[in-house]
Amino acid sequence: MPGITREEVAHLARLARLELKPEELDHFAGQLDDIIGAVARVSEVADQDVPPTSHPLPLTNVMRPDEVRPSLSPEQALSGAPAQEQQRFKVPQILGEE
């Protein structure tokens, strides 16, 4: 099934927001291919009628009452910010939709 190409690695890197260097693209292509090749055996059970397990313990309905709890102070909230302005997180221009 595998055979991960350099282009696929580049696509994954874009999805994951990693600006990989050209040599990393090749390196990861090889390694991901090896790893996926090794772990692909899980698909042996793909058509088995087994329910998937997403949570190790069968807990349900864990909820909290709608009661206000103290927030951080804005100083605490912004304490790790690489840049701030007007009590807001300052970030480079956003390439949004418009």
Binding site: V68, R69, P70, S71, A77, Q87
Partner: peptide, 24 residues
């Protein structure tokens, strides 16, 4: 129009100063 956010206890009240209704 709940009093708090969906996954934390921060207030949802309108008109607050920026970043005063945030938590980890």
């Amino acid at each position: 129009g709940t009093k708090t956010k969906m996954f934390c206890g921060c207030s949802t009240a309108l008109g607050a100063e920026p970043n005063t209704q945030t938590c980890p």
